[in-house]
Design a protein around this nucleic acid. Structure first.
Lengths: 93, 93, 93, 93
DNA sequence: CAAGAATTATGAACCC
DNA sequence: GGGTTCATAATTCTTG
């Protein structure tokens, strides 16, 4: 460590420094590992969308559908109603 | 179009419709399952950041650190690609 | 809610509705106008890239060059920020 | 220039080099200028969305509306129909 | 037209 | 809790 000479360093300083460095290393490694897994899952999801496309489904619509399923039905209803209101306000059929 | 909506559909159409509907269900369910897992991982990552914060680390720095570790290989690659393509653009290979 | 849809609305409601509808129209029209201009600019940029290609330049290199000219200041800034925040994280200021 | 010694260089090489360099410079500058303008417009658009939000409009719905106005009505119809079909296939009301 | 990059939009997190 | 920045998702555009 840069600020400790061998004989002047207290046990405490050395220990604290090492502990912090080890802790940091552990944190970074765990996060990076989980991010790898996340990335793998994202890739799997992408593959399924490709499969869906090949099977003739409209991917854009599929995404919208899945987004809707995450929302409360009331929320979906509310948004659809609002779109409608705005459309009429602009004279869009 | 992936499936049929007419209720007067012939047996063939209906069958096709069912097959497509089953396929769609399968696709949606698999995607939703993977997204759940993704969400769980995101939550785990968040927990580690919280832990890091409690341990006295600066979360913003940590994030940037991890981002930079990710980018470094990409940047090296990018530079090499650029040099390569410059050569070609200048007719040096 | 921004405006009213009931056709039995009182004069007040109706007025509010009209005002809101006019406001909405104004907003939408202004946004669409600006988006048109944006699109025109994008088209102009595309033309210049075509011209560059015709003149024998490698468009991919060109794009990367321009990207890098944009990023450089941001990167410098980012580095400075990181150093700064590291200092704080390490209790050096 | 790296590959020309002063006395061996032909006038042609030098000229070609200058012309190319000037041309490149012109191209880069024009593109960067147009991109600046584009950026300014993007900022203006953002401001209008802010204004809309302050006026009580739902920005997300507003964006969707503007997206729809860019499409052909038939296309909009088609997508809405498709969503509906998928929803029913999944038993979503 | 399919793959991949780049832009844009949405959603989450943090600070005030 | 509101608003602003940051991170992720999604669409659009480009290129092979």
């Amino acid at each position: 460590m840069a600020f400790d000479t061998a004989d002047q360093a207290t046990a405490d300083h050395a220990t604290t420094g090492n502990i912090a460095a080890d802790r940091l290393k552990s944190i970074v490694e765990r996060i990076e590992r989980l991010e790898e897994e996340r990335k793998a899952l994202a890739s799997d999801i992408k593959d399924i969308y490709s499969e869906a496309k090949s099977a003739g489904f409209d991917v854009k619509v599929l995404r919208q559908l899945i987004r809707m399923r995450k929302q409360e039905p009331a929320e979906v209803e509310e948004q659809e109603m609002l779109i409608d209101v705005y459309r009429r306000a602009l004279g869009m059929a």
